[in-house]
Amino acid sequence: MTRDQIKDLVLDIIADIDDEADFETLVSDQPLRDQLDLDSMDFLDIVMELRKRHQLQIPEEDYPQLASLDSCVNYLEPLLKDA
């Protein structure tokens, strides 16, 4: 997947969690949690969705890598290069 595709994937998962999430003003290098109505359970939803959609097993110590949209893309890019 390209970086843009990964970005769309993450946003699509977040939209599934909260269909009222506003991505218009999202700053990609800032924490998602500060900008959207997301909490720790929602992040676990993101992890679960990545597992379901792409069979990714993300270890708990890597969860901080999912903090911002940019860091998500950076972290997922090598994992989804063949997806």
């Binding site: 969690i17 909260d18 269909d19 009222e20 109505d37 359970m41």
Partner: peptide, 8 residues
């Protein structure tokens, strides 16, 4: 409450 909360 929001749809998100109902889903959760």
């Amino acid at each position: 409450r929001k749809k998100k909360e109902n889903k959760r």
